[in-house]
Lab assay of single mutants.
Amino acid sequence: HFTSQQLQELEATFQRNRYPDMSTREEIAVWTNLTEARVRVWFKNRRAKWR
Rank of each mutant, 00 (worst) to 15 (best):
V30H: 12
E36M: 05
K44G: 05
P20Y: 03
A29C: 05
E27L: 14
K44F: 09
F14W: 06
R47K: 03
N45Q: 13
L7H: 07
I28P: 00
N45H: 13
N33S: 08
Y19P: 00
V41I: 14
Q6A: 06
E26D: 06
N33V: 05
Q5A: 11
R25W: 05
S4I: 13
W31Y: 14
F2I: 10
T3S: 09
M22G: 06
T35V: 04
Q8T: 10
R18T: 05
R40H: 07
F43V: 01
Q8K: 13
E11Q: 03
Q5K: 12
F43D: 00
V30N: 12
R51W: 10
K44L: 08
N17G: 05
E9S: 12
P20C: 05
R47M: 05
M22Q: 12
F14N: 03
L34V: 06
R46A: 06
R38Y: 10
L10T: 00
K49G: 07
F14I: 02
N33A: 07
V39F: 01
S23W: 08
F14Y: 06
T35A: 05
L34T: 13
F2W: 06
E26H: 12
Q8L: 12
L34F: 01
Q8G: 08
F43W: 03
Q6I: 07
T32C: 13
F2K: 03
D21Q: 05
T24I: 08
V41W: 15
A12G: 06
T13C: 15
M22K: 15
Q6R: 03
A29G: 06
E11P: 00
I28L: 12
E36F: 05
E26Y: 11
N17H: 07
E26C: 14
A37Q: 11
V30K: 15
R40Q: 07
T24S: 09
E11C: 08
W50T: 08
N33H: 09
A12S: 10
T24C: 13
N33F: 06
R18W: 07
R40N: 09
W31N: 15
A29W: 04
Q5V: 10
F2A: 03
M22W: 11
Q8R: 12
Q8F: 11
Q15G: 07
S23N: 11
Q15R: 10
W31L: 15
W50S: 09
V41D: 13
E36C: 05
W50I: 08
E27R: 13
Q5T: 10
E27C: 14
K49I: 14
L7I: 10
N33Y: 06
R16L: 11
W42G: 00
I28Y: 03
R51C: 11
W42A: 00
R18F: 06
W42T: 00
K49R: 12
Q6Y: 03
L34I: 06
I28V: 07
T3E: 04
S23C: 12
Y19F: 10
A12T: 09
R38T: 14
Q6L: 05
V30T: 12
T32G: 04
A37E: 14
R46G: 01
N17L: 07
Q5G: 09
F14T: 03
K44Q: 13
V41L: 14
R47W: 04
V39W: 01
K49W: 08
E9L: 15
E9A: 15
F43T: 00
E36A: 06
E11L: 05
R46T: 04
V41T: 12
R40S: 06
W50E: 15
S4G: 08
R16P: 02
W42V: 00
W31P: 01
N45G: 07
E36D: 02
E9I: 15
W31E: 12
D21H: 05
L10E: 00
R18S: 06
H1T: 10
T24D: 07
I28H: 00
W31H: 14
D21K: 06
E36N: 04
H1G: 12
V39P: 00
A29S: 05
K49C: 09
M22V: 08
T13W: 15
L10Q: 00
T32M: 13
F14S: 01
I28C: 02
D21E: 04
R47E: 03
F43L: 02
Q5L: 11
A48G: 06
R16V: 12
T35I: 04
W50C: 11
E11S: 01
K44Y: 11
N33E: 08
L10A: 01
F2Y: 12
I28D: 00
E9C: 15
